[in-house]
Amino acid sequence: MKNYLLAISLLFISYGYSQVDKNEEEVKQLKAVILNAQTDQPMESVHVVNLNQVVGTISNEKGEFEIPAKVNDTLYFSFLGFKSQKVRVTNDMFKFKGTKISLTELAYALEEVIVRPYSLTGYLEIDVKNLPLNNAFQYSISGLSVGYEGGNKNPSAVTKVLGAILNPADLLRNLFGKKPNQMRKLRQMKEDDRIRDLLASKFDRETLMELLQLEKVDIEDILNNCNYSRSFITTANDLQILDAISSCYEEYKVLNRKR
């Protein structure tokens, strides 16, 4: 009986070790080369992001890159002037060397652009009337040190502002509570220098959308309801947007714990 129990124990221990080894081998270093699809030449400084592992890297002068990955991970490639591309990691990429990823150059048809500067007359009273106006209204609440941007002047804007002030936890719960998996990636994204460098050079929200699996309208909705101005939302780079969403999410977690 004792020998039987000993055999069973050894079997479980052996199985446990094999599972640990298997898990450790799941994430490996994937090596590949990035080429220009039109010229078949290697591309340097292409940004590569593993959307699942939330890590990034950059291709060298030979177009080569190395990144932690496992089978079925999705790699996201981006380079200015080229169409961004997503590639699913397969077993063959690990088994066979020399995997090549080709990026296609974007073709822009540039139309004639006529630049019309402000027609200034030199008379202040006339020139002021010709300047564009910002139609966004700021609402101030007595006792609060910050103003709230509500957009155009209408009843719904006031309701939105009061809702943000009176029910901040409920508002943020609606924003973040439905997307827990996406929000868990925020800290990983902030800790990876390659991803931060990439986002600092981006203004189109494309990479951020892929990393967080959110639509552009979702990102704008989060920032709008976290008291960020329209000016910030439209002009900030993707890294600033990431930090803003992360800050708002941390506030949500604090409010959520207090309820």
Rank of each mutant, 00 (worst) to 15 (best):
V71G: 01
N130D: 05
E112D: 15
T104C: 03
E149S: 11
L172I: 07
L103D: 00
E66A: 06
D73K: 07
V146G: 10
L133P: 07
I165M: 04
L171W: 03
T90E: 10
P168K: 13
I141E: 05
S102G: 07
N174P: 10
G147H: 01
N36I: 00
A169Y: 07
L124F: 05
V128G: 04
N91H: 11
L162I: 13
S142I: 03
L166Q: 11
S102W: 02
E105L: 08
S156M: 06
S102H: 05
G150Q: 15
K97H: 02
V113A: 04
G56D: 04
G151E: 10
E111I: 08
V113E: 01
Y76G: 01
L106I: 15
F82G: 09
G122Q: 02
I67R: 02
N167I: 11
K62E: 10
P68I: 01
P42S: 02
F94L: 04
L75R: 00
N167S: 15
S45F: 11
L35W: 02
F65S: 06
A37P: 07
N167W: 14
R88P: 07
E111L: 07
S140P: 05
S78Q: 14
D92V: 15
T159W: 11
N52H: 08
N60F: 09
A37T: 06
I126N: 05
I67L: 01
N52S: 14
T74E: 09
L51Q: 03
G147V: 06
K160Y: 11
V146M: 13
K153L: 08
G163S: 14
I126L: 04
G163M: 04
Y148D: 13
K129W: 07
V54H: 08
K83Q: 14
S142F: 09
Q38T: 08
E44W: 08
V55R: 07
V48T: 01
D92G: 11
K83A: 13
P68C: 03
N167Y: 15
L162E: 09
T57V: 04
E64D: 09
V128N: 06
S145P: 11
K62H: 03
Q41H: 08
V49S: 04
A69S: 14
V87P: 04
E105V: 03
V46S: 06
N152L: 15
N50M: 07
F82P: 05
N174L: 12
E44T: 10
G177E: 06
R88A: 12
E44G: 00
T90R: 12
Y108A: 15
S78V: 08
L51H: 12
N167V: 12
K129D: 07
K100S: 11
G150P: 12
K97T: 03
V89A: 00
T104H: 13
S145V: 14
N130Y: 07
L51S: 12
V161P: 00
N52G: 04
G63E: 00
P168F: 14
Q138S: 12
K83R: 13
H47T: 07
N130E: 05
P155A: 09
K153Y: 14
V146R: 15
V128P: 06
E125L: 13
F176D: 08
G150M: 14
P117W: 06
G151Q: 14
Y118Q: 08
N72I: 00
Y108D: 09
D73H: 03
K160M: 14
E112Y: 02
V161R: 01
T104A: 06
H47G: 13
S78T: 06
R173H: 14
N167E: 15
G122W: 09
F176T: 07
N134I: 13
V46L: 08
L110G: 06
A164L: 11
